[in-house]
């Protein structure tokens, strides 16, 4: 049982995307967050975006630790405040791609107000929400998404509250890209994150994932492998599904797929439209006019496309 850790770190395809010096991480055996981070890292590589221009923001909790493990500019904020911090970064420097990676307790419980308002503004952010139906870091309490009747440490006799259906929530609030997968569907997660990174506007990706230590154990649902098999057997792929039909019952069917993908001006585009009417064509934000910013954006898009093409060509070549 000897592994040359230094060599492994160096050779791993994740080096350059993850802070290898911080491994191993704190997540439990069978937790889905690691798989999601793998999918995220893969999506970043394939998307062709400049890793320098990527910022990852997390809140508090198990998923909140993602920011500390990814090798990009990263901020680990206070509980629930990942989205407003990300909003601040995006508005301070619109060139950046800002990803919020956090848990459902953080994003929809304590940070629920920020979630719906960022969606309402169509703020150009990618929000990846790890939904494991529990507050893992504090010992398995009930969350806004815990299914009815599920047991949590603070609902020891079964949950009698009604849960949020997150795709429906963010759809109602105005999100322009919405997808849901399980941590089993890592390939789809990768693809969805790639699409969301290229999408202009508020993107929301919910990933259902097992919390082995708390949610599964307390509800006697077995271990991580059992849960992933449950996902395999009980997910229903329905692209474009009406988000009103995406509610999750305890151990019931889980609708997965890409539900929403539409075009609407982002917050910054709306600001530009208003200000250019007011100030005229020489309107500047942070010293740059709209045509200047558009030219920069176009140039960056071309670079991204070139990098993406190179990655795809490499893969195609490998498969021939």
């Amino acid at each position: 049982m000897t592994t040359d850790i230094g060599k492994f770190k160096h050779d791993s395809p994740m080096s350059g995307t993850l802070r290898m010096e911080r491994m191993p991480h704190i997540w439990c055996p069978g937790c889905g967050i690691g798989s999601e981070v793998n999918a995220f890292a893969e999506a970043i590589k394939r998307s062709g975006i400049d890793p320098k221009k990527l910022v990852v923001v997390s809140g508090i909790g198990c998923t909140g630790r993602v920011a500390g493990y990814v090798d990009f500019d990263s901020i680990h904020t206070t509980h629930g405040r990942a989205i407003p911090v990300a909003t601040g970064i995006k508005l301070a420097n619109p060139e950046l791609t800002v990803v919020v990676f956090s848990g459902e307790g953080d994003l929809t419980g304590i940070g629920g107000n920020h979630l719906i308002h960022a969606a309402r503004r169509n703020m150009d952010l990618v929000v990846i929400c790890n939904n494991n139906f529990t507050y893992g870091m504090t010992g398995g309490q009930v969350t806004p998404t815990t299914p009815h009747s599920a047991i949590a440490s603070t609902t020891p006799y079964g949950n009698y509250e009604y849960p949020f259906s997150l795709p429906f929530l963010v759809d109602a609030a105005g999100a322009t890209y919405i997808a849901r997968w399980t941590s089993m569907d890592v390939r789809n997660v990768t693809q969805s994150i790639e699409e969301a990174l290229a999408h202009k506007g508020f993107s929301f990706i919910e990933i259902i994932s097992p919390c082995t230590t708390l949610y599964l154990r307390r509800n006697r649902l077995g271990d991580g492998v059992d849960m992933l098999q449950h996902y395999q057997e009980n997910t229903v792929l329905k692209h474009g599904c009406d988000t009103r039909e995406t509610a999750i019952d305890f151990q019931g069917k889980i609708v997965i797929g890409k539900f929403v993908d539409k075009v609407k001006p982002t917050y910054l585009e709306a600001v530009d439209q208003c200000c250019v009417k007011l100030v005229g064509d020489d309107y500047q934000l942070y010293g740059k006019t709209i045509p200047e910013r558009e030219a920069e954006e176009k140039a960056e898009k071309e670079k991204v496309a070139a990098r993406r093409a190179a990655v795809l060509a490499e893969q195609t070549e490998a498969n021939e």
Partner: peptide, 26 residues
């Protein structure tokens, strides 16, 4: 608009100061 600055009215004070932290690092 004339100075080239950005004003945003956030959903509450929690979000306002959080956005400042983001903007400062931005």
């Amino acid at each position: 608009p004339e100075v080239g600055a950005l004003f945003i009215q956030m959903e509450d004070e929690l979000a306002s100061i959080a956005a400042l932290i983001g903007a400062a690092w931005g």
